[in-house]
Design a protein around this nucleic acid. Structure first.
Lengths: 224, 224
DNA sequence: TAGATTGTTAATCGATTAACAATC
DNA sequence: TAGATTGTTAATCGATTAACAATC
């Protein structure tokens, strides 16, 4: 991803770095809550099981979080990363589909703590409509557009049945959603400028299975 | 990951390749169910949004799925990949923690279809114990060891509260579990030969946020 | 045969790690 | 000062892509 900073200088941030930024922020918030004021690249990297030089290399794309000789100031670093990642202001999101998975997402307290307030839950099941989860009433799907426009929602999670995944996604995009967190096994067809993140549950189990299988047959492995 | 094949030849399979194997299998099973008999690297790669040469390169580590000039035979490729990934025989797994997330995982029909039968659900909440999900009764956590040993379970998903995540993981490992699918935000400390896969829900939202934020400010981007 | 396809190697590209001067 | 630390560049490592002979 190529981006331009405030001074107009263009630079390219590797995808691998982008994927690590949330992990850094995650750990730093924990440290902050624990009252830690300073952290070195070595400490922070170790807790994330990566090399310190990799962390400094990542930070170097954005530059100037500290000075040579001084460790990082946690209270400075947290807001700096929040701005880079785009969670310096709260980023509201909605969940479409209030089955078990949808409700699990809604109940996940960490989202709010990390700057993602839940502002809407939608489902078409009459038994669910009206029920409150974390203070949010489940609304019928036909209300999606209204809520999204009113609350200026940019992100939505989809946990609906496969059969209605595509049409749900289209409704969301039409209403203004820019990023979709797709928990269905469907390949959504959406305009190129819409970011889709697919969470494929079963592939996680398969990766685990592959790796543990190798470990059950030591004669088949030789770790280096 | 370095492995040795049946002829005793050692070779190293890149992690990136391992991560793609389940995706290949996933698509191929869909094709098989749709009655498709043959597929070229080009077709299969396109549906996964990767290059055909990458797919052939990946397959080349395991070798011999087809012959030059002939596309792949779906009915041959599926079992071959299943064996490589380690799902040629059913791989039973259990879910510990029957809250919304746990129940969502239990209800996910695709696991069974992909070779991962659910054989146990555990929770300590008296209101949940005894309830059946997909024919499986929720049992108290103290029963974990018995079930795992009896059914020879190697994989377990943890969706318990953070506070008891570590002790739950230890119980599982002591009972014989080799791979843990960790849905808690806790860094589990376990023996090195135990494979842990962490699913960090909040980082998914953060990645989405980063990318959509850039797209909202076109002046900050220049995609190449 | 002509067109399509695989297996396989080489070339390119990207990501990680090491090294170290500058600094506290 | 001595030890620890960052920012930054160069070196290494790994992953992707291109190219093409062999084959159907």
């Amino acid at each position: 991803m190529k981006i331009t900073n405030k001074k107009g200088k263009q630079f390219r941030v590797p995808d691998a770095t982008i994927r690590r930024l949330p992990l850094y922020l995650d750990k730093l918030i924990l440290l902050q809550q624990a009252g830690v004021r300073e952290v070195s690249s070595r400490q922070l990297a170790m807790s994330l099981d990566i090399k310190a030089s990799q962390l400094r290399h990542d930070f170097h794309y954005f530059g100037g979080f500290s000075k040579p000789g001084r460790p990082y100031d946690v209270d400075q670093l947290v807001p700096a990363l929040e701005e880079i990642i785009g969670v310096d202001n709260p980023v509201p999101f909605v969940v479409v589909g209030a089955g078990h998975l949808g409700q699990a997402l809604c109940n996940y307290a960490n989202f709010e703590r990390q700057g993602f307030p839940l502002v809407g839950i939608f489902d078409n099941d009459p038994d669910l409509i009206g029920i409150k989860i974390r203070g949010i009433k489940i609304e019928p799907i036909e209300n999606i557009a209204t809520v999204i426009k009113k609350k200026n929602v940019r992100l939505a999670a989809i946990t609906v049945p496969s059969l209605v995944a595509q049409e749900t996604a289209v409704k969301l995009v039409d209403a203004g959603v820019r990023g979709i967190w797709n928990y269905t096994p469907v390949d959504l067809r959406l305009p190129k400028d819409i970011i889709v993140r697919n969470e494929r549950l079963a592939t996680g189990l398969m990766c685990l299975s592959f790796k543990t299988k190798r470990l059950e047959h030591p004669e088949l492995i030789s770790d280096d």
